[in-house]
Design a protein around this nucleic acid. Sequence first.
DNA 1: CATGAATGAGGTTTCATTCAT
DNA 2: TATGAATGAAACCTCATTCAT
Lengths: 190, 190, 190, 190
Amino acid sequence: VSPRTKEQFEAIRTEKENLILEVALNLFAKNGYASTSVSMISKEAGISKGLMYNYFASKEDLLKRIIIGGLKQFTMFLNVKDVSNVQKDELIEFIDDNLQALKNDPDFYKLYFSLAFQAEVFAMLEAEMMKIFGDITTVFINYYQSKGETDPFTKTRFILAVFDGIGIHYIIDTETFPLDKIRDIMIGLL
Amino acid sequence: VSPRTKEQFEAIRTEKENLILEVALNLFAKNGYASTSVSMISKEAGISKGLMYNYFASKEDLLKRIIIGGLKQFTMFLNVKDVSNVQKDELIEFIDDNLQALKNDPDFYKLYFSLAFQAEVFAMLEAEMMKIFGDITTVFINYYQSKGETDPFTKTRFILAVFDGIGIHYIIDTETFPLDKIRDIMIGLL
Amino acid sequence: VSPRTKEQFEAIRTEKENLILEVALNLFAKNGYASTSVSMISKEAGISKGLMYNYFASKEDLLKRIIIGGLKQFTMFLNVKDVSNVQKDELIEFIDDNLQALKNDPDFYKLYFSLAFQAEVFAMLEAEMMKIFGDITTVFINYYQSKGETDPFTKTRFILAVFDGIGIHYIIDTETFPLDKIRDIMIGLL
Amino acid sequence: VSPRTKEQFEAIRTEKENLILEVALNLFAKNGYASTSVSMISKEAGISKGLMYNYFASKEDLLKRIIIGGLKQFTMFLNVKDVSNVQKDELIEFIDDNLQALKNDPDFYKLYFSLAFQAEVFAMLEAEMMKIFGDITTVFINYYQSKGETDPFTKTRFILAVFDGIGIHYIIDTETFPLDKIRDIMIGLL
DNA sequence: CATGAATGAGGTTTCATTCAT
DNA sequence: TATGAATGAAACCTCATTCAT
């Protein structure tokens, strides 16, 4: 047998890494970060504990990678052609994209929300999150301003809070939460 | 010398218990439940680790007592004379009481929100929380029904989600969140 | 009210002491020595933990006092007028007294047997127990010798082992063990 | 370098496991179960405390494994071809096997006897022990019945008690107890 | 790349004993 | 005599991380 090529190794790395990331996300979401052990992750991923440390420097590194990967996807939803002239359609799409993501990957959101309340974790993600939050805030303020809203800032802070509230309630009770109907209420707030 | 009276002992107990509860709430809110050790709590409270267990059967018991204490206060806000005939004033008072509590004791709310996403913790409090949530839901549904709202259930799920969203955003960013103005928006949803 | 007399104090002491001894014996027998806490004993006796240490220097002291008290009673059963001329009746009475004690106070025997296998405890009682065991052995050897038994020593070691075996089986299964019928078998061994 | 093979890992596990079992048995026998700490065991075995828990789920699990291992061997001694037609030879072999085991592994028997009197420990092994005791009881009752004994049940309870009595006396005083001669007396009881 | 035995620090909990009252 | 709050050592156990293979 010939030795594996560089590409093959790379492929293995990526595949294993994604597997680990996925498994870890699930477990973190289910049990919380502190209550999920590295052993559990490696067992669930079908690899040895030692190998975990080939891919991730530490348990904390693993967490970081999960979050950052998720946030990257997150920013992509806000597609506004001209920030000084935000269209309603663009915000509707933003909302719909977010709700779709919520439906597709509730585990990530569960983890995301749970971490937002753990100071030490939050600290390490604050910069990333604040940037995203700032961008979105700006877009909404501009939109409400162009609509002649009396207090665009307050309205924006309100609707972004509503977003998270809805996300949370959907996550906690996926079964009975009427996400689609509530989506219409949200659109009405624009 | 005569031993302390029952009253004296009780006073000591009450005082220490409250001290521990307060310290623990702060630390849980700051670090999360799992990442806060009993050692940290006892050190911060200025007592020995062992004494903790004179007052609380376990770390979990301590958490339960904190949460249940908070929830108790929570239910008191929902003062509705006739559940089948809910008045707008009553709901306004409910909202205002909650927002006031949010301002007075942000740590408790931080803890409360952080726990809602940790399955194992949530499980242990589920019964308590679901009862409260159920009661509130009923009141709002009745209210919206009496107002002739088309879909009282969806509207209720929406406004309760909004509540939590606002609570969370206020907790995360107490400084700039315009809680009072947003309160008016919420009232407008009734 | 006049101060208590010396006699009254003495009476209180003795009464409390006996109460503690009794309660402790029960709990030690039920849970084992190591698994019975001083708290449990004091609670069960209806006194404070601190007071326990007025009567007994330590938990170990308490154990010692129980055992020594029990053993004292034990020696009284071997009433032999002339050690060089042991009568069958005397041994029958010895057996019957022992079985009676077994029935009356199974807890003590349970504790006694459980301790016999814990080296550290055994060490502390060894001298006392060995003396008793030696006395009894002598009596039985003499008896069997006088009866013309071929190997009085072996026969003695056998019957004393039988004694303990029966005691143990009775203790473990008081309900169905046919103690009275087995008593007759034992008598037959004389 | 390639990783160890499955066989190598298994060999390590088996060896360490047996080492721990052996060390623990010795210490339990010497000090009693409750008074033997995991620290003592690990120190005596020359491993870290943590490693103990790689091999045994808990201290209790360790005890169980010791006992169950011992009991397994125990049942093997009772080789009866036809339970409804028990032969004297079979019982003699049963007795001899037991006495041999007693000589070979006095520590196990010491532990076994000491546990029978610790309610909490006994409870956890009760099912296992009762099954074995029941099987043996049945065999002896059948045997005595076939021999025309007047009261096979009492005779059985008696001889089983005798067994344990002899075991205990041998354990306590291995040096001077005339086990072989007493074996003959036991055979005479069949 | 891959394994899992091994460590050691730190977690929760228990409890005999002391001591101010 | 009597109380129970308080301590501190030590118990059982967990787990991120390392390392020989």
